[in-house]
């Protein structure tokens, strides 16, 4: 498998605080990749740098062989990097269907009728078709999480970054979201999962990286990484 995302010596500071220090990692095409670490370890900062929400970082971010570090976020989305947000950010004045029309129009450049047909298909796949005409501000927590993923899918990504898509969900809802992510990966989409629910990360990921205080402290298969003393120390403070 060739590398889809290559991050080299990435560092990002906020004033005097180093949120990321010299992070280097590569993610292969079609991989299911888990990113873990305690609160404040730099996970969201890392994906904000990858997706373009944060800029002016040092180092290199190559996507599909192209340096994307200087590109604005919308250009990175158009090249195939899509993400969901930790705290769902639906377009609240729009219906669920309209939420999906935005990426279809701006990334896929589809006509309205084509975009609607494809959006309805995605909503059906995710079990949201009955809510298509509902205002997104009326959705439940799990529906909002699904909408985030549906909207990311509508951007036709090569790489999907799922930022704590299961936070606050019940066990069965976690299973639902996990199934969606597995299905997406089966379609060839590379997935980065950032999650605090360790069982979900262990079930989903082929490879896991653990961050602590902005540095990679450990990398490996899910079953081995939880046994690493450094990971246990980072989580438990032992």
């Amino acid at each position: 498998m060739s590398e889809l995302l290559e991050i080299n010596s990435l560092s990002k500071s906020f004033g005097g605080f180093a949120a990321l220090t010299d992070v280097t990692l590569a993610i292969a095409e079609g991989e299911r990749f888990g990113l873990i670490g305690p609160n404040g370890s730099g996970k969201t900062t890392l994906i904000n740098c990858v997706s373009g929400m944060l800029r002016n970082e040092a180092g290199s971010i190559r996507f599909s062989g192209e340096e994307v570090r200087r590109l604005p976020a919308y250009q990175r989305t158009r090249r195939g990097i899509a993400r969901s947000f930790q705290i769902p950010r639906p377009f609240r004045s729009m219906t669920v269907l309209e939420n999906l029309l935005v990426p279809y129009q701006y990334v896929g450049h589809l006509r309205d009728d084509e975009a609607r047909a494809q959006a309805l298909e995605v909503l059906r796949d995710l079990g949201l078709s009955q809510k298509a005409e509902a205002l997104s501000s009326t959705l439940s927590q799990v529906e909002l999480r699904k909408l985030e993923l549906a909207r990311a899918m509508a951007a036709r990504p090569k790489l999907l970054i799922s930022d704590e898509a299961m936070a606050g969900l019940s066990g069965s809802e976690v299973d639902e979201v996990l199934k969606i992510l597995f299905d997406l990966n089966a379609k060839g989409i590379t997935v980065i999962m950032i999650e605090h629910i360790m069982q979900a990360v262990m079930r989903f990921s082929q490879r896991v990286v653990c961050l602590d205080a902005g540095r990679i402290i450990c990398e490996g298969a899910p079953e081995s990484i939880v046994k690493e003393p450094e990971v246990q120390r980072a989580y438990l403070g032992a």
Binding site: M53, A73, V102, Y106
Partner: peptide
Amino acid sequence: WIGRGLRALRDSEEAAEGCGVP
């Protein structure tokens, strides 16, 4: 499409960028 993009960025500028809206 301009109006849809403007509404999207009014609701969430980050999410709009994440949907390819310049």
